[in-house]
């Protein structure tokens, strides 16, 4: 049974996101090839889930990509590739795919589909993914993402201080989402990208 979560970003209600998390991925090469071929049936953001810190991390990339798309300033091919690009702290598109996108050895995958037209529904996406992704399905959640995050690698890419001491200055907010130091720094870095 495919687990698929639909999330709507505040202020972007017309384009909900369909998120599907997978583990034990077996056909990474195949999926990656579809992207390289530009196969229109495979317009997804395929992210290496281990490079994702938290739900906020994912959503911030989605917001940036969607907003840039709406404002007519995409830097990459489409809104889905832009999600991958938005994760990167710098402007090198190819590098962002290498770091955050799917590779032949990816085992944990987050697939994101932006609802760009009424053609795409949760059901249609779920069906399509279950047909083509050979992996175990995991329910997308903040907790699931955090569990699978490769903190050391993430820190390194964002230059967030390997020792962890410096960035973890801020205490949690005590209520609602708690943005700790690393997460806050990463979101800010993503927000500033391209400035």
């Amino acid at each position: 049974m495919e687990e698929l979560v639909t999330l709507t970003l505040p202020h972007l209600p017309l384009h909900p996101l369909f998120l599907s998390l997978f583990t034990n991925l077996e056909n990474a090469s195949f999926l990656r090839q579809q992207l390289l071929d530009g196969n229109q049936e495979f317009e997804y953001a395929f992210l290496d889930a281990r490079m994702l810190l938290s739900e906020n991390h994912v959503l911030a990339a989605c917001f940036r990509a969607l907003n840039d798309w709406q404002r007519g300033r995409l830097r990459s091919r489409n809104v889905h590739s832009e999600i991958v690009f938005s994760l990167s702290p710098n402007n090198n598109i190819a590098e962002s795919f290498r770091r955050f996108g799917i590779s032949d050895t990816t085992t944990d995958l987050l697939a994101i589909k932006v609802s760009t037209s009424s053609e795409f529904t949760a059901e249609s996406v779920r069906t399509h993914l279950s047909q083509h992704v050979q992996a175990d399905s995991v329910l997308f959640s903040d907790e699931a993402i955090r569990r699978g995050a490769d903190l050391a690698r993430i820190r390194k890419v964002y230059k967030a201080g390997g020792d962890g001491g410096k960035v973890n200055g801020a205490a949690g907010t005590g209520g609602g989402a708690a943005l700790d130091g690393v997460e806050g720094f990463i979101l800010g870095t993503m927000a500033l990208k391209g400035s």
């Binding site: 967030a160 410096k166 200055g169 801020a170 205490a171 806050g184 979101l187 800010g188 500033l192 400035s195």
Partner: peptide
């Protein structure tokens, strides 16, 4: 907008207790 965002992110990086920047639209 950029100056404020950059200062906040820099503070965050260095462990100064400030709120996080979640997003920025400097053209808007």
């Amino acid at each position: 907008i950029l100056a404020e965002a950059r200062v906040l992110v820099r503070c965050k990086r260095e462990g100064v207790s400030v709120p996080a920047v979640l997003g920025a639209g400097w053209e808007e």
